[in-house]
Computed example of a mutant assay.
Amino acid sequence: MIHLQPTSTIPYTDMGGAASRLATPIKQRRVEKDLDNKVVEALRERARARKKTFKSVNSITMRLPRFKDGLRDIRDVFDHYDVDSNGTIDNEELRSCMSKLQVQMSEKEVDDVHRYCDVNSRKGIQFQEFVVLLCLMYLLFGPGVTRQVSEFESAKLNYVFDELIDAFLFFNKDGDGKMRRKDVTQRMNEASHQERTPSHITTQLFKEMDLNKNGSVNLKEFLFSMIRWAGIETEDEGSNETSP
């Protein structure tokens, strides 16, 4: 169970609605930080317990078709929980999903995770974000999550989620859960010192991953980007996404 620390509200003053308008973003940032910290803790534990999977950026890029194949079957799961078939999983639908996955979370925690995984801020979880959510649940709660998604496909999903998480750890050498532009540049060039990747390419690649433009990429943003590059698309997106 994800135990989130209660967030304090901003004292309501004579400024009227200004205080309440400010309270929500601050609370949300605190929740996101709390979830980020829990993900970092899980990543560090994983890095200590597992051998490194990837030795170069090319080895990650070559796995993209396999990632796509392994994640394709999640579409049926998404459609099952998208009860109203509008291409988005809302809070109520997500609660049903978490119950099915046997992830013990309070309604508030489900709401917090829902907002956390709403990467593109379209007020609901689309298919790519749903894949990100399942991968994060797998990291935090273990393989029981994938068994509930699909008993038949659980081994395949475990493999894909493991490699997606390990791909992030390949870039995140500091182990703090934050990938920076220098990490991308260093990793893309360390395999060959003779043919260095042009800086404008590594810069563009990092910008595509840094979805909230804060100068670092967390696991959530990295997963969302990798899923797009693998060709896992939502109903309203084309197939012309930039790939690494």
Rank of each mutant, 00 (worst) to 15 (best):
M1C: 09
I2K: 06
H3I: 14
H3D: 14
Q5C: 12
S8H: 12
T9I: 06
I10L: 14
I10T: 15
T13A: 13
D14R: 15
G16R: 09
A19L: 01
A19F: 03
A19G: 09
T24G: 13
T24I: 12
K27N: 14
D34N: 14
D34S: 13
D36R: 12
K38E: 08
V40P: 01
E41N: 09
E41T: 11
L43M: 06
A47R: 11
K51F: 00
K52Q: 09
K55S: 15
K55W: 13
N58W: 08
S59H: 01
M62R: 14
M62C: 10
R63M: 14
R63P: 05
P65F: 10
R66H: 14
L71F: 15
L71K: 13
R72E: 07
I74A: 08
D76T: 15
V77H: 12
F78G: 05
D79C: 10
H80K: 15
V83N: 08
V83W: 08
S85W: 14
N86H: 08
T88S: 13
D90R: 12
L94F: 04
L94G: 02
R95K: 10
C97L: 10
C97T: 01
M98T: 05
M98K: 05
K108G: 01
E109K: 12
D111G: 11
H114R: 12
H114Y: 04
R115S: 13
Y116I: 03
Y116Q: 02
C117T: 03
D118M: 05
N120A: 10
N120G: 09
S121Q: 11
R122T: 09
G124L: 11
I125M: 02
Q126K: 15
Q126R: 15
V132A: 12
C135Q: 13
M137S: 11
L139I: 06
L140M: 12
P143D: 02
G144E: 03
V145Y: 04
T146M: 15
R147K: 13
Q148N: 14
E151N: 03
F152K: 11
S154H: 12
Y159A: 01
Y159F: 03
V160R: 00
E163N: 07
E163S: 11
L164C: 00
F168L: 00
L169T: 04
F171C: 01
N172F: 00
K173E: 00
K173F: 00
G175I: 04
G175D: 02
D176S: 00
T185R: 06
N189F: 02
E190C: 01
S192N: 08
S192E: 07
H193G: 08
Q194K: 09
Q194M: 12
E195A: 07
R196T: 04
T197S: 05
P198I: 14
P198W: 15
S199W: 07
T202Q: 04
T202S: 10
T203N: 08
T203L: 13
K207C: 08
L211G: 08
K213L: 03
N214F: 01
L223F: 01
S225W: 04
I227E: 02
R228D: 01
A230G: 06
G231P: 02
E233R: 07
T234I: 02
T234Q: 07
E235N: 10
E235T: 13
E241G: 11
E241K: 12
P244G: 09
